[in-house]
Structures are given as C-alpha cells and as structure tokens.
Design a protein around this nucleic acid. Structure first.
Length: 399
RNA sequence: GGUGGGUUACUCAAGUGGCCAACGAGGGCGGAUUGUAAAUCCGCUGACUACGUCUUCGAAGGUUCGAAUCCUUCACCCACCA
C-alpha cells in the first residue's frame, strides 16, 4: 500500500531529497490518518496557467490522494523582487487589486486539478511584511555570499557578466523562510528551484524546527518548440483555458520526441503502458500519429470534456486533412473596395500591409480557398473567407 | 570615488564617413514534401496603396554636401582597483 503510494508519488520526478521522510509521513498517515503539508509556491504575476504548471499541480493532487494537505502559497511579497531567472530583473509592481484578480483566476484554474477541500491558500506577504529589517538581517545572516554564488544560476551569470541584483540574493532566503513559517513537511517545485527549495531545509534547521522539509523537484516541461521551457512570454505554451481545438491542435504540432516527454509528465497512463506504447511505435505496430492523437485527446479532455475533445479532433481532421475550412472563425466587417492587404491587417491575419504584400507574393494568401497573387486587389461587396498560410483564417463581410 | 570596456533589428553578432533599411547565424513566417512530426530544399523577415517616400544602430545636441560610423553632454550596463 505504502509502496504503491510512494511509487505513484515518485513518478516523473527529477529528484527527491529525503525520500525517507516522505515514507515516514505516509506510514503515519496509514497508521492513524495524520495528514501532512505539501508546500508549493506560485507567482501571482501571470494569471494564466499552462501545461507547465499542471505538471506540478498534478503531483500535488497525487499527494492529496495520499493524505497530503496542500499549502498553496501565493508569492505576493516575493513577486515584488522577482526570482532570479536570468531574465530582466525589473518587474512591474502589482497593485493589491491586480494580485487579487490574478489569484482568483489562478485558483479557479488550479482547482480543475486540485482538491479544493484539501488545499489551503496562503499569502507570504502576511508574514514577510512583518519580518522587518531586524528579521531580515537575522535571516540574511544564515547565508554566505560564497554559498550564494554556488547557485548555478548566479555563477553562470556572474561568469558571463550578466548583472545580478542584490535583491535577488534575498529571494531564496524569503522563499526558505516561508517554509519555516509554514512548517512544511514537503515542498515541491521545478528543478530550477533546487537552490531555493534546499534553502527551506537549511533555514528550518537554523530556526530550530524539529524536522526539515523533504524536497521534490519536477522536471521543467519544454514548450511546443521542444527546447525552451514552456512559458507564456515565449509563446510556446498550451493554456489550460484554451479552446478544445487549440489544445488539441497544439499538442498535435509537437515533435515526436517531445511527445514522449509530454506522455511521461502529463498523461495519466501508467509508466508501463507508456513504455509499451513507445515500443509499439518503434516497431511500427502503432503509427506515431495515432499515439499523438491519443495524447491530444487525453489532454483536451482533462480541461474540457470527452465530447468536446472528440469534436476538436473531427474539426481538426476536416480542416487539415480534408483541407476544409474551420467551422467557426473570427468575423469582420469592412467597407466596399477595401484593399486586400489592408483587409488582411484589419482581420488580424497580418501585422502590416508590408507583410501582407510579401505573403501574397509568396502564394500564401487565398480568398475562398483560391490562391491570389495580385497584391493590388480590392475587395468588392460580398462575403469572403480569407486565409493566410495553413492555419490562419477569417471571415470577412464587405459592404 | 578611480581606470578601462560596452549599448546595433526578436536574440546573438558584423559594420569605425558615402557601395547601409544595415553582413552573418539563430529564431520566426511562407512555399514544396509530410503525419499541422522530424529531416530536407527554396523564398521572405522596418513601415507606408510602394521601382518611390518615411522612420530606425542607448538618448539629446553638434561637425559634414553626406553619420550606425567623428565630436560633446547625458543615461544605463560590465570588469578591475578603492
């Protein structure tokens, strides 16, 4: 029983520190029902969840299955500093209202996966604000600069002359202090969080807590490009609130290699089933396309439902295999005689008339499924379906 | 506080008075092929009803017939020293 639980909990993790501690927690839970806490921090700056976040959330949901209570930590205080990601250190300051708004939509999305009754939402501003300068100093005395520079991220940036703000040094300390305050039993985060997660252990010890949190790291999910991590700013993400056909289409557009990564981290199939599938694909028993379609269906179903997912699949096949037109697309109204390039811009298919001209020259633009090559064309009254490339459509009413 | 180096398009990175709307690479977009996969080949990649015009090389001034390139001031970044 415990063994199975532990196995399911460990699945797909990149690294676990102090797995014995987790085992003890599980034993206790099965003995007398004692629950334990699992902390995970979330940044309130981006209100849109994508699949990358769900890797973590799914893991939390599994802990909930086995007696874990989730401490859903909103980093409203730490968001003001910004985690040292190597990117720009400057961040816009969020107002209280912004944060509340973000959190509301954030948690609403998160509870598609998490059990609300086994989740406590906490805000680190509640205790970090009270820490004060004295508390900060005490906190900071736990760490040496040399140790800080050991952090992979910092040492790389230091070596490559990328600036490091002093405030960024503070970030791991504060995140660690959160664990002290919350007395977390386990903390989970991405592999990029290793340093911060370990800081929690160190500080819990320094502040005299009886035991230190176990740490679990999840791999970072690659984005659609398969190289960089999934993030909204890179535009390589699949949002959990996206339309079924978008989710379906985006999953299908990933590379075959990446598909296995997604299977491992996102699918609910057992690891042995996935292994089998992988084998079948490599022996050509199963076409990779089929495997990918199933994955796309599973993921689409998770955030919508089976029916919608199937519809998305049909739509997809009709549009891309049958070269048909999608059933619904954005509609626009325009004035009679509008220049085709301008119409493309107005219909948000092109960013500029210059780009529109180029695409027309390159045979990328069609009206009602017929390629055009006259960039000087003006549209007369009527209804048209404009298309750029294979994926961009719009319906235009000219009057 | 001192000394030196730097800031070019989405990113990296050439260009040190006219040949610069700016080499090259990556990325992106499009075409062919295909499974909206990979790989490959080709084209495009500042804006503008457009063989011309306008705006861009950290910012503002200046020198010049002409400036990404030279000068001045400012801002920001980095390294070393203190």
């Amino acid at each position: 029983m415990i063994k199975e639980a532990l196995e399911e909990i460990s699945r797909g993790t990149a690294e676990i520190i102090d797995i014995e501690a987790i085992e003890k927690l599980l034993i206790k839970y099965y003995e007398d029902g004692t629950t334990y806490t699992v902390k995970a921090g979330f940044d309130p700056t981006a209100p849109d969840l994508h699949l990358g976040h769900t890797v973590l959330l799914q893991k939390l949901a599994i802990f909930q299955k086995f007696g874990g209570r989730v401490q859903f930590l909103i980093g409203d205080f730490t968001a003001m500093i910004g985690d040292p990601t190597g990117k720009s250190a400057t961040r816009k300051v969020l107002t209280k209202d912004d944060i509340i708004k973000n959190i509301t939509s954030y948690t609403k999305q998160a509870f598609k996966i998490l059990d609300e009754n086994k989740t406590t939402i906490v805000y680190n501003n509640d205790w970090l604000e009270k820490l004060g300068a004295g508390g900060m100093l005490q906190l900071a005395s736990n760490l040496t600069v040399a140790r800080m520079l050991e952090r992979d991220d910092f040492s790389k940036r230091y070596a490559s002359n990328t600036p490091i703000a002093v405030s960024e040094f503070i970030y791991p300390l504060l995140q660690g202090y959160d664990s002290v305050h919350l007395e977390s039993d386990i903390e989970i985060g991405g592999t990029d969080q290793k340093f911060n997660l370990l800081m929690g252990r160190q500080l819990q010890k320094a502040y005299g807590l009886k035991k230190q949190q176990a740490v679990m790291m999840m791999p970072i999910l690659e984005g659609l490009d398969g190289v960089q991590k999934m993030s909204k700013s890179l535009g390589n993400y699949i949002g959990v609130t996206e339309e079924p056909k978008n989710i379906y289409g985006k999953v299908l557009s990933i590379s075959d290699d990446l598909m296995w990564r997604y299977y491992e981290l996102l699918s609910e199939k057992s690891l042995s089933d996935i292994e089998q599938l992988k084998k079948d694909v490599s022996t050509r028993t199963v076409h990779p396309k089929i495997a990918k379609e199933n994955l796309a269906l599973e993921i689409t179903t998770r955030f919508h439902n089976e029916e919608l997912a199937k519809l998305a699949k049909e739509e997809f096949n009709s549009v891309f295999k049958g070269k048909n037109i999608p059933t619904d697309m954005a509609e626009f109204e325009m004035q009679d005689g509008i220049w085709i390039c301008q119409a493309l811009v107005d219909a948000k298919l092109e960013p500029s008339t210059s780009q529109a001209r180029r695409d027309i020259k390159q045979n990328a633009v069609s009206i009602d499924q017929k390629k055009i090559n006259d960039e000087k064309l003006n549209l007369e009254a009527g209804e048209y379906i404009l298309q750029v490339g294979k994926k961009r459509f719009a319906k235009v009413k000219v009057k």
